[in-house]
């Protein structure tokens, strides 16, 4: 390549940094939604770069379903300490206790949908007017139409048919009182780009992304890590000591593992290159219907 061109990763990095700086300048009170997964960790890395040598000028917020991988929480707390930024935790259990969210019925209720309630309550409580999300357009078909700056009305709703056109790199963050924006700096990244970037930058990620031994329950083809949050149902067995890793990290009740021996970032990059399933293919939350994500997004989901 000629000396005046950037690699695709450097271009994506420059774009994401630009978007983050725009948000910090255009909004009064932004927040970065942090799940402990690789995409939000990548966002934190980019935020560090965007404002260095100053500190990241906004807090992180974790919407906590209470069904976490313990490794994620340890990682989160250590990262926040190192960065010296504020961490806000919005608890789904608190929303349930308040009566604003109702636990699903049946065995192993998923709190995935309830997160939307807690997210919107937390944004309102702290009066955040912009929230960074790590969602990427390659993840899911409803996300493919998402803007970098995604406008939400006073109910936190997304109106996919009435989005603002987004041209060049001129981002319009103007809004009325009570409205807010979701901003997606990783819009143009693919799963592969994120892994390549993590490998290139040597970004630290939770150990459960790497191959390890774990007891799993096979539920409709999704390998759920066996934990206190999982009730083994009739016809299911616990498979002991499977060699697995996670491609995404979400709630323990719906994030499936993949069988893998990948123990290094380079091996993960190789594995992703050869993968024949999307990463969300292991997410039970997306399997509910063809438009599951579109419906959740309209209500105000991540």
């Amino acid at each position: 390549m000629s000396s005046y061109s950037l690699t695709h990763l450097k271009q994506l990095e420059a774009e994401a940094i630009f978007v983050m700086r725009e948000v910090a300048s255009q909004f009064e009170k932004p927040v970065l939604l942090f799940s402990g997964g690789k995409d939000s960790i990548t966002m934190v890395r980019l935020a560090q770069k965007a404002f260095w040598p100053a500190k990241i000028p906004f807090p992180l917020m974790h919407i906590d379903t209470g069904h976490n991988f313990p490794e994620t929480i340890e990682f989160r707390d250590r990262l926040v300490e190192e960065l010296g930024v504020e961490l806000i935790v919005g608890s789904v259990q608190d929303s349930i206790n308040r009566g604003s969210a109702v636990e699903e019925k049946g065995p192993n209720p998923s709190r995935n949908k309830l997160q939307t309630v807690t997210l919107l309550e937390s944004l309102e409580q702290h009066q955040f007017d912009a929230a960074f999300g790590g969602a990427r357009r390659d993840e899911e078909k409803a996300r493919a139409k998402e803007r970098f700056f995604s406008h939400r009305d006073e109910f936190g709703q997304w109106d996919p048919k009435n989005q603002r056109p987004e041209l060049w790199n001129l981002f319009n963050g103007k809004k009325n009182m009570g409205e807010h924006f979701r901003v997606f700096p990783l819009s143009n990244w693919t799963e592969m780009d994120v892994w390549q970037y993590i490998a290139l930058e040597g970004v630290e990620i939770p150990q459960i992304y790497f191959s390890h031994q774990r007891d799993v329950v096979n539920r409709n083809g999704v390998l759920l890590g066996h934990s206190e949050f999982i009730t083994v149902m009739d016809g299911e067995t616990v498979e002991k000591n499977k060699t697995v890793r996670f491609r995404t990290i979400g709630d323990m009740t719906n994030t499936g593992a993949v069988e893998s021996g990948a123990t290094t970032l380079e091996e993960i990059v190789q594995e992703v290159a050869a993968a024949r399933q999307t990463e969300r293919g292991n997410r039970a939350d997306d399997k509910r219907s063809e438009a599951a994500m579109e419906d959740r997004k309209k209500e105000g989901y991540f």
Binding site: H8, R137, E294
Partner: peptide
Amino acid sequence: TDGLRAEREQGITIDVAYRYFATPNRKFI
């Protein structure tokens, strides 16, 4: 490349959608 529910139902594309692929030397948006 179908995205939104209305698009699938009507068989049309309503909005700009972004797609990604890569070959060994180049990433495409």
